[in-house]
Design a protein around this nucleic acid. Sequence first.
DNA 1: ACTTTAACTAACCAATTGGTTAATATAAAA
DNA 2: TTTTATATTAACCAATTGGTTAGTTAAAGT
Lengths: 237, 237
Amino acid sequence: MGEKYSLKYTKNDRNSNMSKKNTGASSIDSKKSSTLAIDRNTEKRILEAAKNVFYRKGLSGARMQEIADAAGINKAMLHYYYRTKDKLFDAVFLEAASKFFPNVIELFNVDLPFFGKIEYFVENYITLMLENHRLPSFVLNEIHQNPERLEGLLRNHAIVIPERAIFEFQKAMMDGVIKPVDPRQIVINMIALCIFPVAARPVIQILFSLNDEQYFEFIETRKKEVSKFIINSIKAV
Amino acid sequence: MGEKYSLKYTKNDRNSNMSKKNTGASSIDSKKSSTLAIDRNTEKRILEAAKNVFYRKGLSGARMQEIADAAGINKAMLHYYYRTKDKLFDAVFLEAASKFFPNVIELFNVDLPFFGKIEYFVENYITLMLENHRLPSFVLNEIHQNPERLEGLLRNHAIVIPERAIFEFQKAMMDGVIKPVDPRQIVINMIALCIFPVAARPVIQILFSLNDEQYFEFIETRKKEVSKFIINSIKAV
DNA sequence: ACTTTAACTAACCAATTGGTTAATATAAAA
DNA sequence: TTTTATATTAACCAATTGGTTAGTTAAAGT
């Protein structure tokens, strides 16, 4: 019968990949290529499809049916695995936010001189954003429409952020490597310079008449320009 | 009978404020304060309400009924004046985009030395964005979801943009006032530094634990910091 | 006064949408 | 093999939503 998530969701309130399910997948062989070629774990396929659709349409613009179609499964399965649209969105948003808020600790923990750290961060963060250029404006906009979702993630420690970078800047100031300014401002500047050209990609392409290739080229040279821009500005005289 | 917009929209395809309508308004007096205190032009009230709702919820999240309620009028009037949700959104978006894409010509035409122009631009553009902090992320996101809308505006010359600023930067380079770099990069940097802290307002407030007052204070000092940051970076040595 | 046109309303409608359910297929235990 | 739990489907449903319409009020013309 259709006991469905009654068990799943009562026991483990979130969807943590269930114990056994669709287990016959590890090997690439396939007796019956039932739906589509790639016969991966259904739950993952849903999430992947949901990401796709939510990124493009946003929470309110996305349609459950479209997600189901994109995943190549029955719409009821979405509710079977994620219960409601909002819960499914939560899962998507968590992943998006984790990517969006760079693991600054990691990106700043490299063993490099201070300015090298900045170069490393800029280069990697832009690359990361570019992997899915819809992510920044998606995250920013959804947070605007419902800030509580982000607050929730912070409360659960699903996401942490700036202290480390701020501390690094403070240290660099004391060492006389950079001019003294509110480090929060520098961190924001750094992130702004990385994110904006991705968040505003269509604008940039349209205004500067760049096709996709030209855009990528533009961003590629930008990676170096941005760190130069930052370092030029903050380095102590 | 309900000929309605048949005339209006066949004659002048866009909603350009109709000839005579609700004419008894110029004077503040009011014989019958029918619905609410402010008895302004209905069409304007709709647009105002629509702006409010669309900014908060986006195109797909907004509900016609909510807009009607916000305007304090019957829902049918929305269609009477603007025909469809999408057309109404067009009107809202046009206004939003015009604000978002700063009149760079104007902001750069002030009679000031080059660095003064930058200060002037930064100060004014941040102020402008701050007036409605939902605008940047709204515009950016809607463009992402439907770039054609922006292209349409450009085609109609409803919006023009960067040439002037770019030219100014080129000139400054030739005069040896600033270092030689692709001026497009500088323009983008300038705009990024202004827009991001507004587009990411909830993020900043949450991460840095700022209440509204503290946020505004932060942005206020930022106005000066940003132009310092830019000028420090680009001025010729 | 009367006729025409514009502004406005309440009720309605078809389509869409998130979500449910009863039935079925499939795999795992027993 | 039988039983039991899990995975999947097609059909359905109530609520919402953009949009329409027939009719009403109010203002201009005439």
